[in-house]
Amino acid sequence: MGIVNLIIVVLLIVCALAIEKMKDLLGAVIVFSIYSLLMSVLWLVLKTPDVALTEAAIGAGITSILFIAIIGRTERFEK
């Protein structure tokens, strides 16, 4: 179990750095959605199913939808 944990943490950090680096906001939101999903998987690995479920529904689902809605109404690229 420890190895899975380690891999997910590394992936999370990679995702976070990618979010920081990306100039395309839409891409960043998609990576953010992946980040949230990974986080919820990690919490499932850490035996907290309730939090994982909530994070999957709220973090990966609704937050990403709202981000995309906002990007649709504003600009897509960071300067």
Partner: peptide, 25 residues
């Protein structure tokens, strides 16, 4: 289902409500 089974299985008001909201979205 998730809202009503919050006390016997993972889930509860938040996740269930968010799911229900997602369906309307």
């Amino acid at each position: 289902f998730i809202i009503l089974h919050g006390h016997v299985s993972p889930g509860g008001g938040f996740s269930g409500g968010a799911l229900f909201g997602t369906s309307l979205i």
